[in-house]
Amino acid sequence: MAVGTAEAPDLVTVPTRQGLEAVDIIRRAASLAGGVGPVLHDGSGDTLGFLVPPGTADAWDMPGSACTQTNGRGMRFDDVSPAAGDTGWLLPPEAVGPVTDPDVLRAALGEAARLIEAADNCR
Rank of each mutant, 00 (worst) to 15 (best):
T70A: 11
P9W: 02
D101Q: 05
V14T: 09
A107E: 11
L32P: 03
P54V: 08
M62Q: 10
I25V: 15
A33I: 13
G72T: 07
P54R: 14
A33H: 08
G45V: 07
E21I: 07
L20G: 05
G64M: 05
D86C: 07
A95L: 10
L51Y: 02
I116R: 01
L51M: 10
W60K: 08
D42L: 07
A113L: 06
M75W: 06
I26M: 01
A59P: 01
D78W: 03
F50S: 03
L90H: 07
L32S: 14
R17M: 09
V104H: 01
D58S: 08
E94L: 11
I116K: 01
P82L: 03
P92K: 14
A112D: 00
E21W: 10
D61P: 00
R106W: 08
G35N: 10
R73M: 15
L90I: 09
A95R: 15
G74W: 00
Q18P: 02
L32I: 10
D42S: 11
R73I: 15
P98Y: 04
V36Q: 01
R17C: 05
S31M: 09
V12Y: 05
A30V: 14
T70V: 10
A8I: 09
E111W: 03
S44Y: 04
A113K: 04
T87N: 11
A118T: 12
D79G: 07
P102V: 04
L105M: 01
R114Q: 14
V96S: 00
F50H: 04
N71Q: 13
L48V: 06
A30R: 13
L105I: 01
R28L: 13
I26C: 01
F50N: 04
L40H: 07
A66C: 09
E7T: 15
G37E: 00
S44T: 09
A8Y: 09
E7H: 14
G72L: 06
N121V: 08
A95H: 11
A107P: 00
L115E: 13
T47Y: 13
D58F: 03
D79M: 07
D42A: 08
A66S: 15
L115C: 05
P15T: 02
V14R: 01
A30Q: 13
A66K: 13
T47Q: 15
A2E: 12
E21G: 04
V99L: 02
S31L: 08
A8P: 11
R114N: 10
D120E: 15
A30L: 09
G43D: 12
D24I: 06
M1V: 06
A30D: 15
F77W: 10
A118Q: 13
G72I: 08
D86F: 13
S44L: 10
A59N: 08
G35A: 13
